[in-house]
Design a protein around this nucleic acid. Structure first.
Length: 569
RNA sequence: CGGGGCGUGGCGCAGCUUGGUAGCGCGACUGGUUUGGGACCAGUAGGUCGCAUGUUCGAAUCAUGUCGCCCCGACCA
C-alpha cells in the first residue's frame, strides 16, 4: 500500500474526548472514529488488525472442533420470552419494533438463538457434542459506554456455544476451549493471564476470564507466585488467617464517648486504634430485608460474594433513614452488638481480639469487643475482597495484585437454557435429556484496544507483529531524489511479491513527519532509505520496539526482513 | 439514573464574569524556498458559536428549556 493512497488521517493533538491510552492512540493514528457514544467506525488500519485477530481466533476455534455460523442480530422477542430473559435483561438490551408492532432485540448475546436453532435440528445423542460459533457485532446499551473500544455499545465478539450429552462431555468441551483461548492469546502476541471468574448474570457454575495485562486495565487480578492460582478479585477466595499465637489478654468491654467521629479514619486518629483493630458495619437491603455486614475496618465488602451467599435477587446499600429507624443510630455509629437484624460477618473478624465498633447510639463506640462473648453473628462467611498480601487459598503462598483487561470469558452454562427452551436430545436408552451447554466469548474489538493498552510508548502504538496492520513500512527520506525512490520502489515490489504486508511512504513530506506517522501507527519494522547510507548501498532497518537502527546492504534487505518475520510469526 | 464538567471552522483552545456582530495554534489548499525526527515565507478557503424559545436597539456572551458529549459510581466481551 502506498501511504499517499492509504486512508489513515492522523492527528497531532489528542482529541479531548479520549481519556485512556488506547482510545487516544487509536483516534490519533487514524484507526477509529466515533459515530456516537459507544459506537465507532473502523478505518482501514483498524479493519486490518481486526481481521488478523479474527483469523487467529477462527483458526483456533476450527482446530478445537468449532464450526463457524452466522446468526441474526435482530432477534424476535418470543425467543427471549421463552428463556425468560426478555423481562430480566433490562435496559441494557436494545429493543426495536417493526411496522407490525412486533418487538425484537438487537442481540446482546446469542444463547436464545443458538438454543432454538440446535433444538430444531439436533435430535440424537449421535449428533453431539457440537460446537458452533460466530464472529459478529453485539449490541449492549451500556449504562455508561466509555474508554473508546473498551466499553462500547456496539462491539465485535466471537461467541461459541457447546452442546454435550452430559457434564463430563461439557468438561471436555470446556477444556478444549480453555486450551484454544490460551493458544489464541499466545498467538496474538499479548501478555495475558487466565483467572477464575464470577459467572455473573449469564449463569452457570465454572468460569474463567482471560485478561490482557495492562496497568490501565479495569479489572484487578490477584495471583500467586508459588502456584498457578489467579482470580479476579470479585471471585478470589479468602482464607481464614491463623489464630493469633501470642497470648493476648481478653479485655473488658468499654464504651467510649466519640463525639462527631464517624469514619474508620476518624477513629484511627481519635482513638489511636489502627484500622485492623476496628470493625465496620455496613447495612444492606437484601430482597427487602435489612441486614448488617461486618468486616475488618480496612476491608472492602465484595458484593458478589454477599449476593451469592444470600441468594438475593436484589441487593443494595440501605439508606440512612431506614437504618436509623431500625437500629437507633446513623452510619457512623453502628456495631454488631445488640443489632436487631441478621448479621453476616466476614470470617476474618473471628480471629480479631479486642476490637472497636459502634454502639448503635450516636457518638459512642465500644472498644475491646470480642465475637462470641459480646455478640454472635448470624453467619460467618467469606465476604471481603481479596487484596495483595493475602494467603493463597490453594498453596498458602502470598497473593499479589495486577491489573488487566478482560478480553475473553468462558462459562459452563449447564442446562439453564436447554431446560428453559426445551432443547433436548434422545439418549441411547430412548429418553429425552436436556443438552448440557457452555458458552465462550472473545471481545475482538476490545482485544485490539487491549493490545494497544499493553504495547505503546510516547510516540505511539507498538503492534505485536501477529496483529500489526502492516508488517513493514518503507520510508524514503526524500521522494524527490530519484536514487532513493528507485531503491524504495524496488524493495516495495519485492516485498509485495513475497506476500509481505508493506507500506511505501511515498508522500512528499519531510522525513520527520513520516517517521512520526510510522511510529504513531505502530508498524513493527521500518526501512529508512536516505542519502547517507545509500552512498554505501545500504539502508537502515529500525524495529518499532527497539531504539537502535541497523544498516543493511540493499541486496540483503528482503532476506533479513523475511527472517525477522519468520522468527516473530 | 445520581454527582461533576463541556458543546465556538477537521483537531486543540480563547472570547462569556462586565452583551456591540468571532479570534489563536495545529491541520487543509495555492505558490515559492526547503528536505534525516511533526520546516519557513507569502497568500487562500473554511464557523447559522449544539438546538429552541425568551430578555434586549443588539446575544457566542444573560435566562429558560432541550439535545449531544466527556469524567466519577452501579454493568461487562
Amino acid at each position: 500500500m502506498r501511504a499517499s493512497q492509504l486512508f489513515y488521517p492522523t492527528l497531532r493533538e489528542v482529541p479531548s474526548e479520549a481519556e485512556i491510552i488506547s482510545h487516544q492512540l487509536l483516534l490519533r493514528a487514524g484507526f477509529i472514529r466515533k459515530t456516537t457514544a459507544g459506537v465507532y467506525s473502523y478505518l482501514p488500519l483498524a479493519k486490518k488488525v481486526l481481521r488478523k485477530i479474527e483469523n487467529i481466533v477462527r483458526e483456533e476455534m476450527d482446530r478445537a472442533g468449532g464450526q463457524e455460523i452466522l446468526m441474526p442480530i435482530i432477534q424476535p422477542k418470543e425467543m427471549w420470552e421463552e428463556s425468560g430473559r426478555w423481562s430480566v435483561y433490562g435496559d441494557e438490551m436494545f429493543r426495536v419494533k417493526d411496522r407490525h408492532d412486533h418487538y425484537f432485540a438487537l442481540g446482546p448475546t446469542h444463547e436464545e438463538i443458538i438454543t432454538n436453532l440446535v433444538d430444531g435440528d439436533v435430535q440424537s445423542y449421535r449428533d453431539l457434542p457440537l460446537m458452533l460459533y460466530q464472529i459478529q457485532n453485539k449490541y449492549r446499551d451500556e449504562i455508561r459506554p466509555r474508554f473508546g473500544l473498551m466499553r462500547s455499545r456496539e462491539f465485535i465478539m466471537k461467541d461459541l456455544y457447546s452442546f454435550d450429552v452430559d457434564e463430563e462431555g461439557l468438561d471436555i468441551s470446556y477444556k478444549k476451549m480453555f486450551n484454544a483461548y490460551q493458544a489464541i492469546y499466545g498467538r496474538l502476541g499479548l501478555d495475558f493471564r487466565v483467572v477464575e471468574a464470577d459467572s455473573g448474570a449469564i449463569g452457570g457454575n465454572e468460569s474463567h476470564e482471560f485478561m490482557v495485562l495492562a496497568e490501565t486495565g479495569e479489572s484487578v487480578i490477584v495471583y500467586c507466585d508459588s502456584c498457578s492460582y489467579a482470580a479476579n478479585v470479585e471471585k478470589a477466595r479468602c482464607v481464614l488467617p491463623e489464630e493469633n499465637e501470642a497470648e493476648v489478654p481478653v479485655l473488658e468491654l468499654e464504651k467510649i464517648h466519640t463525639l462527631g467521629q464517624r469514619t474508620i479514619q476518624d477513629l484511627v486518629e481519635f482513638l489511636g486504634k489502627p484500622k485492623t483493630e476496628q470493625v465496620k458495619t455496613l447495612m444492606y437491603m437484601a430482597d427487602g430485608e435489612l441486614i448488617a455486614v461486618v468486616l475488618r475496618g480496612d476491608r472492602e465488602l465484595n458484593e458478589f460474594k454477599l449476593q451469592h451467599v444470600l441468594e438475593a435477587e436484589e441487593l443494595f446499600m440501605a439508606d440512612e433513614g431506614t437504618v436509623r429507624e431500625k437500629c437507633g443510630a446513623g452510619f457512623g455509629s453502628l456495631g454488631p452488638i445488640g443489632l436487631p437484624v441478621k448479621i453476616y460477618m466476614d470470617m476474618e473478624v473471628t480471629v480479631m481480639l479486642n476490637f472497636t465498633c459502634g454502639v448503635n447510639e450516636d457518638d459512642y463506640h465500644y472498644t475491646n469487643v470480642n465475637h462470641g462473648r459480646d455478640f454472635t453473628a448470624t453467619a460467618v462467611l467469606d465476604l471481603r475482597n481479596a487484596v495483595a498480601g493475602d494467603t493463597c487459598p490453594v498453596c498458602g503462598g502470598m497473593l499479589k495484585e495486577i491489573r488487566g483487561v478482560e478480553v475473553g470469558h468462558i462459562f459452563k452454562l449447564g442446562t439453564k437454557y436447554s431446560d428453559a427452551m426445551g432443547a433436548v436430545f434422545r439418549d441411547p436408552n430412548g429418553e429425552d435429556k436436556p443438552m448440557v451447554m457452555g458458552c465462550y466469548g472473545i471481545g475482538v474489538s476490545r482485544t485490539m484496544a487491549a493490545a494497544v493498552e499493553q504495547n505503546y510508548d510516547e510516540n505511539g502504538i507498538i503492534w505485536p507483529l501477529p496483529i500489526a496492520p502492516y508488517q513493514v513500512i518503507i520510508v524514503p527520506v526524500n521522494v524527490t531524489k530519484e536514487e532513493q525512490m528507485s531503491v524504495a520502489e524496488e524493495l516495495y515490489q519485492e516485498f509485495l511479491a513475497k506476500g509481505v504486508e508493506v507500506i511505501l511512504d511515498d508522500r512528499d513530506e519531510r522525513a520527520g513527519v513520516k517517521f512520526k506517522d510510522a511510529d504513531l501507527i505502530g508498524i513493527p519494522l521500518r526501512i529508512n532509505i536516505g542519502p547517507k547510507s545509500l552512498k554505501e548501498n545500504k539502508v537502515e532497518m529500525k524495529k518499532r520496539n527497539e531504539s537502535e537502527t541497523e544498516l543493511i546492504a540493499v541486496e540483503d534487505v528482503v532476506k533479513t526482513v523475511m527472517e525477522f518475520l519468520q522468527l516473530n510469526k
